[in-house]
Amino acid sequence: GFETASVVKVGILAALLLRAGDAGRGLTVAERAHAAAMVVRSDNDSASALWRAIGGARGLDAANERFGLTGTAGGEGTLWGLTRTTAVDQVALLRQLFVADGSELSADARAYVTGLMGRIADGQRWGVSAAADGSAWALKNGWLRRSTTGLWVVNSVGRVSSGGHGRLVAVMSRGSATLAEGIALVERAARAVVSVLAAEGDGIGRAERDQKSS
């Protein structure tokens, strides 16, 4: 699996909404403030607050089981960014958010998350959006420089419109020497995946890239 970095923030919010739905309640004012900051600006303090609210890795893993994710494991302790996942699982989560059929989440919950993913802050609008023709995209990116290697984990997940079709795309990468190199890699992969989908008439794109440093 790949470290999620901040793409796990979508999973944290999905888990929070699932718990709230089970309890028959909406999100509190504080939860909504944290959720917006966490997704739109990728605010880490807000992510940590909601990670605690869902019960950490145990809460994330329980939600992911219901969402049909099989290769994702929450990060230890407070380290939500070291959650490990696969592109296949990230697409499964995107389906829960963007496809009503078979989703564990209510229409309101899905609209809330996808709406935040469509309002990402300037400077974070890269990644799978490179594969969109026009401005119709909803995404969440993650980027993390591993202290052990000095190399970057760069990930991007979301929905893009291309050729009149909505496509769910997840790209996970690690091993880039710089963040800029990682972003370029992820955007190349996203464009390649969407062009293949267009040729095959499919709507689901997954890519995983390991940079081999020379």
Rank of each mutant, 00 (worst) to 15 (best):
residue 184 A to H: 09
residue 69 L to C: 10
residue 187 E to D: 00
residue 127 G to A: 07
residue 194 V to Q: 07
residue 73 A to P: 01
residue 125 R to I: 00
residue 107 A to S: 12
residue 81 G to W: 14
residue 161 S to C: 09
residue 25 R to H: 05
residue 8 V to F: 10
residue 203 G to L: 14
residue 1 G to H: 13
residue 172 M to W: 12
residue 170 A to P: 00
residue 48 S to E: 14
residue 38 M to E: 03
residue 201 G to H: 11
residue 180 A to F: 08
residue 11 G to T: 01
residue 85 T to L: 09
residue 194 V to T: 08
residue 104 E to S: 09
residue 123 G to V: 04
residue 140 K to E: 06
residue 92 A to H: 12
residue 205 G to L: 08
residue 68 G to T: 07
residue 7 V to Y: 01
residue 168 L to W: 11
residue 30 A to E: 13
residue 190 A to W: 02
residue 89 D to E: 05
residue 158 G to I: 02
residue 32 R to P: 01
residue 69 L to T: 03
residue 150 G to P: 10
residue 70 T to G: 09
residue 80 W to R: 14
residue 128 V to E: 04
residue 26 G to H: 02
residue 81 G to F: 15
residue 95 R to Y: 00
residue 54 I to Q: 06
residue 116 L to G: 03
residue 77 G to D: 12
residue 211 Q to V: 15
residue 196 V to L: 11
residue 70 T to N: 11
residue 130 A to P: 03
residue 191 R to G: 01
residue 16 L to K: 10
residue 176 S to Q: 11
residue 41 R to C: 09
residue 90 Q to K: 03
residue 203 G to T: 11
residue 101 D to W: 07
residue 201 G to N: 09
residue 198 A to S: 13
residue 88 V to K: 06
residue 156 S to A: 12
residue 202 D to I: 14
residue 118 G to K: 11
residue 210 D to S: 15
residue 90 Q to A: 04
residue 53 A to T: 07
residue 10 V to A: 12
residue 182 G to W: 14
residue 188 R to D: 04
residue 111 A to P: 07
residue 165 H to D: 13
residue 161 S to Y: 06
residue 49 A to I: 01
residue 184 A to T: 07
residue 142 G to V: 05
residue 179 L to N: 10
residue 206 R to N: 00
residue 129 S to V: 09
residue 114 T to C: 08
residue 76 E to A: 15
residue 192 A to S: 14
residue 25 R to F: 06
residue 21 G to P: 04
residue 146 R to F: 04
residue 94 L to G: 06
residue 29 V to R: 13
residue 154 V to F: 10
residue 27 L to H: 02
residue 62 A to D: 03
residue 25 R to E: 08
residue 35 A to D: 02
residue 166 G to I: 02
residue 20 A to E: 00
residue 180 A to K: 14
residue 83 T to N: 15
residue 26 G to F: 02
residue 183 I to Y: 05
residue 193 V to C: 09
residue 67 F to T: 03
residue 149 T to A: 08
residue 31 E to F: 03
residue 163 G to K: 07
residue 96 Q to D: 06
